[in-house]
Simulated scan of single mutants.
Amino acid sequence: MIRLLLSGLLLVAGPAAPAADMLPADPVLRTLMEGEVAQGDGDHAALLDTAQILKALGATPAEGQDDLAALWTQEAQDHGVTRSALGFRGRALGPAYRRGSLGAGDSVTVRQLFFAGQRAQISVAPARGAANLSMRVQGADGNTLCAKPIGGVQVDCAWLPLFTDRYDIVIENGGSVPAAFYLVVR
């Protein structure tokens, strides 16, 4: 009887945030997704926590992108949430993130410099249930290093560049509706 009651309560309550297994494994992508959920739910305390975690991870916005940590901190403070900063120090060269959206059939290309002998990694996660996205990484010579559909919670491409060079990161929306995504470049 108690087990039945508990099961019923859990069904009625429902999860406040996406289940842990439905979030990306990458800590920056995970934090971006959790921030979007907190913002959508109007949970300003969680939004401030998420902003502070994003800063602690050393993630910075890609050129021309909004600083979500600063925006989320300001939004939380505008709603009366204040806390002391987390006691972490960021890394000198942390990951860069970008939030983007594409219309049906559209694509975007981001050029990124990667250093020889240093591991390069690109992670992409669909935002809020976006579907039909794919990513492709191409070297300066036009050869494709990695091409994957973005069907789950996170897709990664990682390699070790032999030479310092610029690479093209292409995100495509093959669907018939607009789709949003998060991109993290390490």
Rank of each mutant, 00 (worst) to 15 (best):
L4H: 14
L4N: 13
G8P: 01
L9C: 13
L10F: 11
A13K: 04
G14S: 05
M22Y: 02
L23V: 12
L23I: 14
A25H: 01
D26W: 01
V28L: 09
V28A: 13
T31S: 02
M33C: 13
G35Y: 03
E36H: 02
Q52R: 08
I53P: 00
A56W: 05
G58Q: 06
P61S: 08
D67A: 10
A69Y: 05
L71C: 06
E75G: 00
D78V: 08
T82A: 05
A85R: 03
L86N: 03
F88V: 12
R89Y: 03
R89I: 08
R91G: 12
R91K: 03
G94L: 05
P95W: 06
R99G: 05
R99S: 09
G100F: 03
G103F: 02
A104H: 04
G105L: 02
Q112A: 11
Q112V: 15
F114W: 15
A116Y: 07
A116F: 14
A120P: 02
Q121Y: 11
V124C: 13
A125H: 08
A127T: 05
A131C: 05
S134D: 11
M135P: 01
M135C: 08
R136G: 07
V137K: 03
V137L: 12
V137M: 10
Q138E: 15
D141S: 10
C146K: 02
P149N: 13
G151M: 04
Q154E: 15
V155S: 14
L160C: 08
L162Q: 10
F163D: 15
T164Q: 10
T164D: 11
Y167K: 07
Y167F: 14
V170W: 00
I171Y: 03
N173Y: 01
G174Y: 00
G175A: 04
P178D: 06
A179V: 03
A180K: 01
Y182L: 08
V185Q: 03
R186Y: 11
